[in-house]
Design a protein around this nucleic acid. Structure first.
Lengths: 245, 245
DNA sequence: CGCGAGCTTGATGCCGATCAATGCATGTGG
DNA sequence: CCACATGCATTGATCGGCATCAAGCTCGCG
């Protein structure tokens, strides 16, 4: 159902530069090699293609190696809700475990590459390596906590707060990957942002414009400069926390 | 920080009538006894008290044995978002794994009792019993999928759709526990429902009234009769699915 | 009995959806 | 190279759903 390019390379966690963000956090060099069996192969997903779709049988999980994804669920009447954006080092497919078939679509927003992680392998290695078991649980737990934060956002925040919180979250994650916290390129359209935040694309656009005239942002298409991070924090509802960076 | 009554009883999964809903799904009788070490103790939580609070250090998870809970997150400015309601057989505390401290509050909506499940124990037994490992992963995965459904609801549905979907979800879960799908007693206030659904309590109340005048529900305080389940499905956004039950 | 918590119902107003027009890239085929 | 289509973004005008404010009700309880 998804016959997509399958580029096989000598996949290995032990020499991957994402290992501090991904599943093998906290592994020492010797153990790391034992982990290499975890990643069966890699897979390329061209921009716009789905890595998996709702209903696909669950066979593996995927760690983003390069590129950018969105996940989305659909309602019966065709409405789309984006449930998250995933970048390098983040795991996709956790939704598939509970009933052996995926519950959402994962779509590449740019040409991407993922590591294919067999769930069966992960189960086995988890029994052998408590550290891996623990880390996997942490990742699932973090996803739950993240979802609760989004529920808070969708349930009660107004448009400007949502957009500010969204941008802050993006910059934090980019920063953890070594990028500047003040300059970013959006990988998604205004509509996709809106569908994530429970807003229309026009509202997202207006927020960007407002933030720009207020001197908080510099917006040029998808290129964003954060001019006043403290203000962004304030807008997102945080109690005037002084940015220490 | 939460010195609450600690009623110790001979806790055991093997003779628990919730074992088909809870962690030990699919265990045969002999293995079940090995699982009894999982539940260290039970704990009673009076109505209105917190089982744990955001920031509490994470030491264990909890399976609801009797009673009813809500979980909630707070924003810095004091707004509350209810992230879920939990009934018998459901697990609380999964949010605590990711950074060893809880990220939400769990509050009893009526006098309740929970089984205390040591996370350390669960890790160990998971290595020994692949079935348990699998079931635990399924539960976390299901929580993620559930959260995505709520995001869909909060992101795009209007008030009546939200309330209808909420009621349907409740009746389904009650039915899985052997209760009637057409008669239920709400354990929570209108305000708590609203805070879950991203609505004000007045709006929730108006929806109930509307459903009643439309002949879909019979509402008397917290006592709800579902008169037309098919209509409720339609209202929740499903494409006129004929209820086969 | 009186008080307060929770619920219902009505009147008004605001935020963001909706509708609509324009601009601006990029791509495509004549 | 131009004419045209297409996708994405911006901006304005109007509208509607739900929040907000307000009043009164019911019920349980000290």
């Amino acid at each position: 159902m998804t016959p997509i390019t399958t580029a096989s390379a000598p996949a290995a966690c032990s020499n991957c530069n994402l290992r501090e963000l991904c599943l093998p956090v906290g592994f020492s060099a010797p153990d790391l090699e034992r982990l290499d069996g975890l990643v069966a192969s890699r897979r390329s997903v061209p921009r716009g293609e789905a890595l998996f779709r709702s209903g696909d049988s669950f066979e593996a999980m995927y760690a983003v190696r390069t590129g950018f994804f969105k996940t989305r669920v659909m309602s019966e009447d065709g409405r789309e809700q984006v449930t998250g954006f995933q970048m390098a080092g983040e795991l996709l497919g956790l939704d598939g475990i509970c009933d052996s078939s995926h519950a959402c679509d994962a779509v590449a927003l740019e040409d991407s590459q993922v590591c294919v992680i067999s769930y069966g392998q992960l189960e086995e290695l988890s029994r052998e390596f408590p550290e891996l078991q623990r880390q996997f649980h942490r990742i699932m737990s973090r996803e739950i906590v993240r979802d609760h934060t989004v529920m808070l956002l969708l349930g009660g925040m107004r448009a400007e707060e949502r957009v500010a919180a969204f941008l802050l979250n993006l910059t934090e994650r980019l920063q953890a990957r070594g990028f500047s916290p003040s300059s970013l390129v959006l990988r998604m359209t205004r509509e996709e942002i809106g569908t994530y935040l429970g807003l229309r694309l026009e509202t997202v656009s207006r927020c960007f414009s407002k933030f720009q005239t207020d001197g908080v942002l510099q917006v040029k298409d998808r290129q964003i400069q954060v001019l006043d991070q403290a203000a962004l924090h304030r807008l997102a509802g945080e109690g005037a926390a002084p940015a220490e960076l």
